[in-house]
């Protein structure tokens, strides 16, 4: 068991790096898209209802099926993986962003409007800073779930820690399977702990 780790630790590290790269790319894209969607959704409740309903429906599609369904459209590889991860993230991010922005005290936003702030100013100067914790929580949840789902992206050749898992499975190499699973589990737990530590979150988790 340990022999594999000593011999192939560089493989594991490299896969983890590719994994993180994939996650980072997906996170940046999803944050940009989610920010845009949040601005659009905060304009009208009707649009918000439709968009969140649609995203909830998409979210219930299993990730493997989603990866597989996009192959005919965008082919195998990283592009498809990032698209799927971004789509999944929209649901988590948008839900948390909208809830966070809504949770800002109405009295505060009314006072800001009374002082002559425009809607955009209220959003940027009042609601965003006050909703900071909720926004950070949403980003954290999305990040952890992205790291987790990205494992499955290896099934469509996007690289990452999942590759080691699938390779080990194909050759029935038990140490490879065990270390691959442990590494991917560890990566998620580490991401969760680190982000929990740095996010502006007060009180119990």
């Amino acid at each position: 068991m340990t022999e594999y780790l000593i011999k192939h630790y560089d493989d594991l590290a490299e896969a983890a790096l590719v994994h993180l790269q994939l996650v980072l790319l997906a996170m940046v894209c999803s944050l940009v898209l989610a920010a845009a969607l949040t601005v659009v959704c905060s304009c009208s409740g009707k649009i918000a209802g439709i968009v969140t309903g649609l995203l909830a429906m998409i979210y219930s599609v299993p990730s493997l099926a989603m990866f597989a369904l996009l192959i005919p459209l965008t082919g195998l590889g990283k592009t498809t993986a990032v698209i799927v991860l971004v789509i999944y993230n929209q649901y988590l991010l948008l839900q948390n962003f909208l809830a966070g922005l809504d949770s800002v005290d109405k009295g505060v936003t009314e006072a800001a409007a009374g002082m002559g702030m425009t809607n955009l100013q209220i959003l940027i100067k009042i609601r965003l800073p006050l909703a900071r914790e909720a926004l950070a929580a949403g980003i954290r949840i999305a990040l952890v779930s992205t790291v987790s789902i990205a494992t499955i992206a290896a099934s469509i050749n996007a690289g990452g820690l999942g590759t080691i898992l699938f390779d080990g499975l194909r050759t029935m190499n038990i140490p490879k399977i065990v270390w691959g699973s442990l590494a991917s589990a560890l990566l998620v737990i580490l991401t969760d702990r680190v982000t929990r530590f740095i996010s502006p979150h007060r009180g119990p988790a």
Binding site: V144, S145, V147, S148, I149, T151, I152, G162, L165, G168, L169, I174, I177, V178, G180, S181, L182, S184, A185, V188, I189, D192
Partner: peptide, 17 residues
Amino acid sequence: GTLRIIPSLAVLLLMLP
């Protein structure tokens, strides 16, 4: 909570051995 965030693929494959 920790078990929950572990990728489902990893949990499935850890059962294998």
